[in-house]
Design a protein around this nucleic acid. Structure first.
Length: 329
DNA sequence: ACGCAGGGCGATA
DNA sequence: TATCGCCCTGCG
């Protein structure tokens, strides 16, 4: 089945920049594959795996968004539309956000640098958890590659004209994968094939020491931390249950809450957000991550997640990061 | 080449 | 309760 429809800019509040939103390195999921003018990803909609393709005319933030969806089963257009809106942050009111940023002189400059930038929500919460664990102490390109490797090795493949796409493996599958090549080798016992290459283990995906965290986290997600219950919890309860997962500290927990479950008041503090908050709000005096987190949540309230996203993008583009780096020397 | 960046953890006082 | 060295990989 193939569905094609438009989302007009009148259907959401504020601008939207598809390219910027997908490429801004948010830890919800790797950037979508770009092919033939479309950003593409396999997304589960109403229980069916659907290839979703999204296209926006270049450099026109008010152009209608073109969506094409392909799947085996029939999927209701309204369901696809609502999934796309959720993932691309089209339900967020950027006019309202900008009004908030406008009132604060420290944040006002972010507006011009972040036109149309929206929170890129996870289409799969479990994938978001593993992405966020993989992102800790790690560069964007590397964790993007790791997640794509994991999908290729243990996900289910779906073939389309534009290429093969893979689901993210379930917790049940991921908790049982070998951690490193030695463990993979042991599965063969004495029927070890000659010249066999061991590349179906987690370490081979470049996740490093996080491999055992990922396996344990998958096991806990299957047995203890029920994802569907997360949505009903208060922010604090949800935070406290996530932090129980290995490899999940405050920063990663806040990323999962923000991108995976839509808790907009989460304020994930990595070293750079810490430094930027210090620079913008404390005259460059060093603020420790836990204090920056509390400050952000109290000061930005329901806008905290967006402020974090905008602050970082602004700091990169405006040269603030370069300025901070120079001053460290 | 080789030292450093990046978040979480477990040991230390 | 706060601080510190270590984990792994990619980059300058």
């Amino acid at each position: 089945m193939k569905t094609r429809f438009l989302i007009d800019s009148k259907e959401y509040k504020g601008q939207f920049d598809l390219d910027l939103t997908i490429k801004s390195g948010q830890t919800s999921q790797p950037a979508w594959r770009y092919n033939d003018g479309y950003f593409q990803e396999l997304v589960e909609v109403e229980g069916s795996n659907c290839l979703i393709k999204a296209k926006q005319k270049h450099n026109d933030l008010d152009a209608p968004l073109e969506i094409v969806a392909e799947s085996m089963e029939d999927v209701d257009e309204e369901s696809i539309r609502s999934a796309v809106r959720e993932i691309l942050g089209l339900n967020d009111d950027l006019n309202d956000l900008n009004a908030f940023l406008e009132k604060e002189f420290q944040l006002k400059p972010t507006i011009d640098f972040c036109k149309g930038l929206r929170l890129f929500r996870a289409h799969n919460p479990f994938e978001c958890i593993i992405s966020s664990i993989s992102s800790a102490n790690c560069s964007i390109i590397r964790w993007n590659r790791s997640i794509n490797d994991i999908k290729k090795k243990w996900g289910k493949d779906y073939r389309f004209k534009s290429g093969t796409f893979y689901t993210f493996p379930t917790p049940e599958i991921l908790k049982n994968v070998p951690e490193h090549d030695l463990e993979e080798m042991q599965q063969f016992e004495d029927n070890l094939p000659n010249k066999f290459i061991f590349d179906k283990n987690l370490k081979s995906c470049g996740v490093g020491y996080r491999a055992k965290f990922i396996i344990k986290a998958a096991e806990m997600v299957e047995n203890e931390l029920i994802l569907s219950k997360m949505y009903k919890k208060s922010y604090e309860d949800a935070f406290n249950s996530l932090i129980e997962l290995p490899g999940v500290g405050p920063k990663v927990a806040d990323c999962i809450l923000l991108y995976g479950f839509g808790y907009k008041k989460a304020f994930p503090v990595d070293v750079w957000i810490g430094r930027i908050v210090s620079e913008l709000y404390f005259n460059g005096k060093e603020i420790k991550p836990p204090q920056a987190r509390v400050f952000g949540m109290e000061h930005f309230g329901e806008y905290a997640g967006y402020v974090q996203l905008y602050m970082f993008h602004y700091a990169r583009k405006s040269g603030l990061i370069d300025f901070i780096k120079k001053n460290k020397l």
